[in-house]
Design a protein around this nucleic acid. Structure first.
Lengths: 350, 350
DNA sequence: GTAAAAATTTAAAACGTTTTCATTCCTCGA
DNA sequence: TCGAGGAATGAAAACGTTTTAAATTTTTAC
C-alpha cells in the first residue's frame, strides 16, 4: 500500500520526486516543461499556449497535484486566510457559530479559509487584532459588536489592513460593514407593544458602549414619542447581564405599582429571563404583560404562550461579511460598501 | 511616515532588509552572527553558548522579530494549525461555539491556531477530512458526533493523521477521544422521572447512527428495567428533528390514553419543543408531566416552572480536546487516551 | 607543547512557489 | 535574405526558515 508505485511500460522518469506529494517539478518532468511554464499554465497566465495550458491542467488533475499553500504564501505574502475575532460575550446562543457558518459559506468556492482568533488571547480586543496583523495571520479580519469609536476599526484603518465589521461606527473614513437594522427592530417591536395596548414599555438595552445600543434606543424612543406612551429604561441591567441577575431584577421591579407591562428584549436569553422574572412575580405572559424579542435562532418561537419575535439572520450576515471582505481583499470595487439587513418580523404589522 | 528610518549616530548597518519586517537575517546582521546561529539560538538549541543565546533573544525582542510562519511551515512541514470540522447540525444552540472556545483556550499559550472547516464543503463528512489532509491544512483534526464505525475515524487511522474526536467509536484500534457520559445522563434522568412517580417515560433519542444514541438508550433502558416501569421510544422523531415538527408530534401523541408523562430530552431545543407540544395539548409541565433535559447552555434553567436539567460543559470538553490533540501531535505520551466527562446534575439525587 | 576531543559557529542547500529577465523560435515586412 | 517584433518558453533568483555537513575555536589529555 505504501509501496512506491513502480514505473510501468518502460516509464522511468523521476516522477515521484522524493516519494512525496507531487509538486510543480513533478508536472514539469512529466510534461517536459520548465517549472516556470507549469506554474504559469496552472494560474492561466495569458502568454502560455492553449495547448500547453490544457495539457498541464490535465496532468495536474491526473496525478492529483495540489499547490503547497506554505510556499505560495511565502512567495506571494498572501495567506489565503481570513480571521474572525471571537467574542466571549457571544458564547451563549450560538451567535458566532451562525456568523461563522455564513462566512464559511461565502468562502466555499474560494481558496480562503477561516481561522478563529479568540479575543481572550489578549487583555484588550485591539491587541487581538494587532496580533493578527503583526503575525500576518490573515489577509483580512472580521469582527462584531462595534463601538462608535471602535479601537479595532481605528487600528485597522491606520494600518490599512483589510477588514469588515458587523456593526457600524462613527468614523468619517469610509470602511465596509454589514449591520442589522436595529432601529427598525426596536421601532417595530415598540409599536407592536403599543398596538397591544400596553401602557408602559421597557427595553433591555445592550451595553451602552456598543453602537447598536444607540440604534435600539433611537428606534425605541421614536416609537414611544410618536405614541406619547410611558416608558422605562433600566439602568442597572443590560443584554450582557447574567440571566439569573436579570431575572431577579425583573421580578423585584414587577411588584412596583408603575411596573412596565411591555418589554423589548434584543436576545433570546434576556427574553427568557424576563419571562421567568415576571413569572416569579406572579405575572402571566400575554395576560399581564407582553414581550417582543429578537431571536437569532428559532428558540423562542417554541415558547407557549407565543412570544412576538423579530428575526435576525446571522448566517446571511456572515455570508455577506465573507463575500464583501473577499472583494475588499482582492480590490474588487464593492458595489455597496455598507449593507443594512432588514429585520424579519414574525407578527402582523398594521 | 513611510519614509525609511534614517541611520542615527553613525549607525550604517543594513538592519532593515528591504524596508520590511525583521527576519533572521536582520538579527544576524545586528549581532554579527550567521543566520544559522540565530535560528538555533531562538529555538534554544543546546549547542549555542548561553551568552549568544541570550543576546540573540534580546535583540529579537528589541526589534520586534516574529518568525515567518509560512517559511517555517514550508521548511518543517508543520502548519501549526489544528482544524475542527464544523457540523451543520450543531448550528442551533452554540454547541460548536462552546467547543471552539474551549479549544482556543487550550491553544492559548501555544503557537497553534484554530481553523474552522465546515463539512458542507463536501458531500460527505469524510471528504471534508480528506480535504484537510490532502491540502495539508492542519497538523491535527477535531470533530464531533461520532458514529460507531465512523468513516472519518477509519480514514484518519489509516493515514495516521493526528486527530481526536468528541464521542466514542467501536474501533479496536485505540485512538484518543473525549466523551460525555451519556449513559449516566440518561440513567440519572430516567431515575429522576421515576422518583417523581411518573408512570411512563419517553426519551427523544439522537439519530440512531450516532454513537451517543446507544449510550443514552442504554442508560435509559437500564433505569427503566431496574424500576420495571413502562416506557416509550418514539421512532419517527429524533434530536435533529426540526422543533416545530417535534412539537406537533408530541402534541398529537399527548392526546392518546397511553401517552407518556415523563420525557428525557438530550438538548435544549427538544426540551422546548416538548414543552410547547404538551402545552398545545393542554398538558401542564410539573403537573401533568415532567421533563429532564440536557443543557449545554444556561437556557433552560430560566424556564418556569423549573425543568430538571443535567449540564454538559462543552467548553471544558473543548479544552480537553485541544490539550490532548496537541500532546498527540507532539508525540507526548498521553496520560489518558480517553476522557469521559461527568454529567453535572442540577437536581437532588437520592 | 601538541594532538585529540569537545564546544561553538558557519556555509550552503533545501522546502515549493512566483517573478524577473533572458532566450528561443516563429512570422512577417522590407 | 535579413532583422524586427511577437509569442512561447526557460533559467535563475528570491521569499525566510531549518538542517546537514563542515569549519573554526576552545578545551582537555597526555
Amino acid at each position: 500500500m505504501t509501496e512506491p508505485s513502480r514505473p510501468r511500460r518502460g516509464e522511468n522518469l523521476d516522477i515521484t520526486h522524493k516519494r512525496g506529494k507531487p509538486t510543480l517539478r513533478t508536472i514539469a518532468t512529466i510534461a517536459g516543461l520548465a517549472v516556470t511554464t507549469v506554474s504559469r499554465a496552472l494560474s492561466d497566465a495569458p502568454q502560455i499556449s492553449l495547448e500547453t495550458r490544457q495539457r498541464v491542467h490535465r496532468i495536474a488533475r491526473e496525478i492529483g497535484y495540489l499547490p503547497d499553500r506554505a510556499a505560495q504564501r511565502l512567495k506571494t505574502g498572501r495567506t489565503n486566510v481570513i480571521a474572525i475575532l471571537l467574542d466571549s460575550h457571544e458564547e451563549v446562543v450560538g451567535f458566532s457559530t451562525s456568523i461563522m457558518y455564513g462566512i464559511a459559506k461565502a468562502l466555499k468556492e474560494t481558496s480562503y479559509h477561516l481561522v478563529v482568533a479568540p479575543n481572550f488571547l489578549s487583555t484588550t480586543d485591539v491587541e487581538a487584532a494587532e496580533y493578527i496583523i503583526r503575525n500576518h495571520l490573515a489577509d483580512g479580519l472580521i469582527f462584531t459588536r462595534t463601538e462608535p469609536l471602535d479601537a479595532r476599526v481605528r487600528l485597522l484603518l491606520e494600518t490599512g489592513f483589510p477588514f469588515i465589521c458587523h456593526g457600524r461606527t462613527e468614523f468619517s473614513t469610509p470602511h465596509p460593514y454589514v449591520d442589522y437594522d436595529n432601529f427598525s427592530f426596536a421601532y417595530e417591536a415598540t409599536r407592536r407593544l403599543i398596538a397591544k395596548e400596553r401602557r408602559k414599555v421597557a427595553v433591555i438595552l445592550p451595553p451602552k458602549r456598543l453602537t447598536f445600543c444607540q440604534h435600539i434606543l433611537h428606534g425605541f424612543m421614536t416609537a414611544v414619542r410618536e405614541a406619547g406612551i410611558a416608558y422605562e429604561i433600566p439602568e442597572t441591567v443590560d443584554l450582557d447581564t447574567p440571566a439569573d441577575v436579570l431575572r431577579d431584577f425583573i421580578c423585584s421591579r414587577a411588584t412596583a405599582p408603575d411596573a412596565p407591562d411591555g418589554f423589548i428584549c434584543p436576545g433570546e436569553v434576556s427574553a427568557l429571563a424576563v419571562i421567568s422574572g415576571m413569572s416569579d412575580a406572579g405575572r402571566t405572559l400575554a395576560v399581564d404583560y407582553d414581550i417582543v424579542a429578537k431571536e437569532t435562532s428559532r428558540l423562542l418561537t417554541q415558547l407557549q404562550p407565543k412570544v412576538d419575535t423579530i428575526h435576525e439572520d446571522l448566517t446571511a450576515a456572515g455570508e455577506d461579511l465573507g463575500r464583501m471582505l473577499l472583494q475588499r481583499i482582492n480590490n474588487v470595487n464593492l458595489d455597496d460598501l455598507h449593507l443594512l439587513l432588514t429585520p424579519q418580523i414574525n407578527f402582523p404589522i398594521g
